[in-house]
């Protein structure tokens, strides 16, 4: 039994029934669609989702536009202590509520970081100790990024997840690994 045959039979069944039955059938279908939508929303919220990247702040890691990445929301939810320096994180912007930004973690709670080594936002000798439950974030393209240099350490409660992989464009598809190297 092919799909076309099956579909035409369903259609014939639908056309041969009364209006009230059709209405019931359609409303039931709508409920199922709504349920599917809720399931997709919950998956995107708690497990992971594809999302579009835009903006120059993460060049050269991400292009200015047209890239699709997969966010991993589950592992930060389950193991927040596994977050480390060098990870790419997706977080809610502390200065623009409702905006989602992507940055790289530079410092963890308790670290002492130099606010801005180039001396643009603050004297290059100024250092800050990151308070409990906060991280220091920075864009890879320092010249075009609004990050912790401007607004200071950000709360870890704003972090929504980490970046898992890039899936589009296909020739740049990668799984992101932590690029940190330690100098002894």
């Amino acid at each position: 039994m092919t799909y076309r045959f099956w579909a035409s039979r369903r259609l014939a069944e639908f056309h041969s029934t009364s209006w009230s039955l059709r209405g019931r059938y359609l409303s039931r279908k709508c409920l199922h669609l709504l349920n599917l939508g809720c399931a997709i929303h919950l998956t995107a919220e708690y497990i992971g989702r594809p999302s579009f990247m835009s903006g120059p702040s993460m060049l050269p890691t991400f292009a200015h536009e047209g890239e699709v990445v997969i966010e991993n929301r589950l592992s930060y939810r389950l193991f927040p202590e596994r977050l480390s320096r060098g990870d790419l994180v997706v977080l809610q912007s502390p200065i623009e509520p409702g905006h989602i930004i992507c940055k790289r973690i530079i410092g963890m709670p308790g670290d002492i970081v130099c606010v801005d080594p180039t001396g643009v936002w603050a004297p290059s000798t100024e250092h800050v100790k990151i308070p409990k439950g906060h991280v220091w974030i920075s864009g890879d393209n320092a010249a075009y990024s609004r990050d912790s240099r401007e607004y200071g350490p950000v709360s870890m409660s704003l972090i929504q997840g980490t970046l898992f992989a890039r899936i589009w464009p296909l020739h740049r598809a990668t799984i992101f690994r932590n690029p940190m190297t330690f100098l002894d």
């Binding site: 509520p97 906060h134 409660s157």
Partner: peptide, 18 residues
């Protein structure tokens, strides 16, 4: 819509502990 104003009582995630 981030609909909150002065004098509202709100529930929020602690900035120090998620």
């Amino acid at each position: 819509s981030h609909d909150f104003h002065r004098d509202d009582i709100v529930a929020l995630r602690s900035p120090e502990n998620r």
